[in-house]
């Protein structure tokens, strides 16, 4: 599964790198790595999230972040209109501007885009959600969330062929014309599928563990349906979303997905060199 230096050549498919959003995570390593890969001639798209920074800003403004749980136990943010405004402040505002600034300082010709810009990422609005509250099933309405389904590939490829590194964050543009929250892993997966690219999901663990309690059980690779099923079974909580994103990317046309540790010294190069859990 090692790709060594071949991973950064111009003959490689586009690379889509999903990183965390907050500067606190210290993305310096991944920024240097992106500069390295871009300098080697490979097309790169960076995608970032930043949900914890949204919570911090909500709290600084005196508003409690709201999370809901669906009847089947999936937890997620409930994004009301005010939260949506703060979401736009933090992701395409503060975090994207910081990341583009840092990438440019490292010599990367980054252009920041939200999914709204040019209709880059579109899909159905999910304004109502079934939730479980105090044991009661309820319908909550007014959620500003959506499911990323389509990409303005022309905008992306035009920027890539002009030598830019699109640096993308949620929100996306929903089919009712509103800007809505979308899962950044899923946005990255959709872009990787659209570009036939390789997707690197950097996270705060080494990859997918067969037993999350035991770091010796890291799954190196999954190439067969049986191996993928084992990865799916092993992934819990937030990791199961990354595995779902990997699945969407691959079924949509991505050439491969790796889930790897953002905390390594050269996290992106390490991932390309075989660290983490490879799925293809």
């Amino acid at each position: 599964m090692s790709e060594s230096n071949a991973a950064v050549g111009p003959d490689q498919p586009p690379l889509i790198v999903k990183i965390g959003g907050a500067r606190a995570v210290d993305p310096a390593g991944v920024i240097e790595d992106v500069a390295h890969v871009v300098a080697a001639g490979r097309e790169v798209v960076v995608v970032h999230g930043g949900s914890t920074a949204v919570d911090d800003t909500l709290e600084a403004m005196g508003k409690e972040p709201e999370y809901v749980t669906t009847p089947s136990g999936v937890s997620g943010r409930f994004t009301d209109e005010e939260t949506m405004g703060v979401f736009s402040m933090v992701l395409p505002g503060k975090l994207n501007t910081e990341l583009v600034t840092d990438l440019r300082a490292a010599g990367v010709n980054a252009v920041g885009l939200s999914g709204v810009d040019g209709g880059l990422v579109t899909g159905p609005r999910k304004s109502a959600v079934r939730v479980l509250e105090d044991g009661k099933k309820k319908i909550r309405r007014g959620d500003h969330a959506g499911k990323p389904e389509a990409v303005n590939a022309g905008l992306l490829s035009s920027l890539l062929s002009d030598g830019y590194v699109p640096t993308v964050s949620p929100p996306m543009l929903a089919d009712d014309g509103t800007a809505v929250n979308a899962d950044a892993d899923r946005v990255a997966a959709l872009l990787a599928a659209e570009l036939g690219g390789e997707l690197v999901l950097l996270t705060d663990v080494e990859g997918v563990y067969a037993d999350p309690e035991d770091p010796d059980t890291l799954i190196d690779a999954a190439s067969t349906p049986a191996e993928f099923a084992a990865v799916e079974d092993a992934a819990e909580g937030f990791m199961s979303r990354k595995v779902h994103a990997a699945e969407e990317a691959l079924s949509g046309g991505a050439t491969g997905v790796v889930i790897s540790d953002a905390g390594l010294r050269k996290p992106l190069l390490a991932a390309l060199d075989g660290h983490g859990t490879w799925i293809d």
């Binding site: 999936v74 999910k126 959600v129 319908i139 969330a145 979308a182 899962d183 779902h244």
Partner: peptide, 23 residues
């Protein structure tokens, strides 16, 4: 059935919302 009013009580068919992993 979704409770759309309580006083007076009023019910409507609850929308069938597919639960999505990326919620």
């Amino acid at each position: 059935l979704e409770v759309v009013g309580v006083d007076p009580a009023e019910l409507a068919e609850a929308p069938d919302l597919a639960e999505d992993w990326g919620e």
